[in-house]
Design a protein around this nucleic acid. Structure first.
Lengths: 254, 254
DNA sequence: TGGCATCGTTTTACTCTCCGGAACATTCAT
DNA sequence: ATGAATGTTCCGGAGAGTAAAACGATGCCA
């Protein structure tokens, strides 16, 4: 296990790893200079210089007044990924409708590498969460996705990433998680009761393609004060089911 | 010049170039297998294998049933770039309002590497243009941006990327471009008269930050049949100016 | 004005590691 | 079972990335 990890770290192309480490630190602190990047990474100045020059030449990084920024070429790649499945774009429209109709924040989330990734979002525009990744077990949408897996897959998930706690309400034991997933399977929707962030509740339902494979999860969330039980357990699940169903229909006939 | 080009091609980290060449072909034809990638690139199977493994390990590529896909990690990076300037997110809201109010397609475009990049878009959701890059001189928004540069900068632009023609109406001579840019400076808005795609007209205005630096361009476009002169030269410029002004105000006080 | 400090760029020699080819393992279809 | 085609691993050698130091440019302050 420990050797596995080490093997993995050393495996592959270590030069590429350097490139992406530089890229990630650049993404963290945008508009940064070469020497700053040198300080924040463990590489020498000439190494950072060469990697950055390459990235600029390729168009993935832009340089302005001596400061480096991640470029919009990544936007091209990521939009390609977001448009990979027709269902993703259908979900975009539904997220939007949902947000408008409920006047709440609405999101569409898929799983990747045992994490929940925000693909589409409606809500106060300033703080966009698109692209952000969260632990599956602490989100309504994440639990919805987990509820579609069999016990072995969930066990594997727990083994790999664990059940890190975000708030006092986060599910942190496998037994609790299994029980919760069973409830979700029975009800057909998941509820997040301040499990990721205090003061925030959420509801989510699974989204299927016409051939019944899971596409992702549709979710609505907001402040606990407004998310009363009746709202969370009656109105929102119904609205979410409708939208999820519409996505499936769109994929089948639209 | 020719040596320059060669020098550049060989400069930097060639391993990183390989990684991105593989990544780009992967983005083109998503859900591809290792041997297919080997065919479409000039690399050996083992080389492709090692690079892909590294990218999977880093989380930028995902593998499912032997097929490889670009992952959503790029979404994280590109959203970071899209949120770099407060003005970009302010523009998102305005693009949206604009689209709703006019019931036309609306976009916000910025310049990068002498190309116009679609950053935000409102319109029929299926065919998203976000992240796509177009020649500046063949777009209303692009000409708007060019009109903000001085003649030397425009000359440099022409020298570097040229004036490729997309339709019969595309501006292809420097003189025509300079004249057009002068008109745009006087009027304060740019018009695209089927210069990029036959049957499509557009209008664009510049967007400034409170300190009067150019942020990008706001544009509306649609079919020639609906985009009559009065609409293009009266109503739309006024609407666009309003929105551009609101962005500036948002940045100053909001 | 001159010198000090800082940063970006280039050069060089060394060593590491990436590459290609081939062998091996696996899967699948016939 | 046999063959073909794919993914994976191994290995030696050469090519390429690395680090360190020197160079050049810029700017700041005395």
């Amino acid at each position: 296990m420990c050797t596995d990890r080490t093997d993995r770290d050393n495996a592959g192309v270590s030069t590429t790893r350097k490139t992406f480490e530089i890229l990630e630190t650049l993404a963290d602190e945008d508009g940064v200079t070469i020497t700053e990047l040198t300080r924040e990474t463990s590489f020498t100045k000439s190494t950072v210089y060469r990697h950055l020059s390459t990235l600029v030449d390729l168009g993935y990084v832009v340089e302005r007044d001596g400061a480096y920024f991640v470029g919009f070429r990544f936007l091209e790649i990521s939009e390609q990924a977001r448009g990979r499945k027709k269902g993703y774009t259908a979900a975009k429209r539904k997220v939007f409708e949902l947000g408008k109709e409920t006047d709440e924040r609405a999101v569409f989330i898929v799983e990747e590498d045992y994490e929940g990734v925000y693909i589409h979002r409606y809500g106060s525009l300033s703080d966009t969460m698109i692209g952000k990744r969260r632990p599956l077990h602490s989100l309504a949408a994440g639990k919805t996705i987990l509820s579609e897996w069999d016990d072995d897959a969930v066990a594997e998930f727990i083994d790999t990433v664990g059940l890190e706690s975000s708030t006092d309400n986060t599910i942190t034991t496998p037994d609790d998680l299994y029980a919760e997933l069973e409830t979700i399977r029975e009800r057909g929707y998941a509820v997040n009761n301040e499990e990721y962030m205090a003061g925030l509740r959420g509801v989510a339902v699974p989204v299927y393609t016409p051939d019944e494979t899971l596409l992702g999860a549709l979710s609505v969330f907001g402040p606990t004060s407004r998310f009363k039980d009746e709202y969370v357990h009656e109105e929102l699940p119904n609205r979410l089911w409708d939208k999820a169903g519409e996505i499936k229909v769109t994929l089948a006939y639209g």
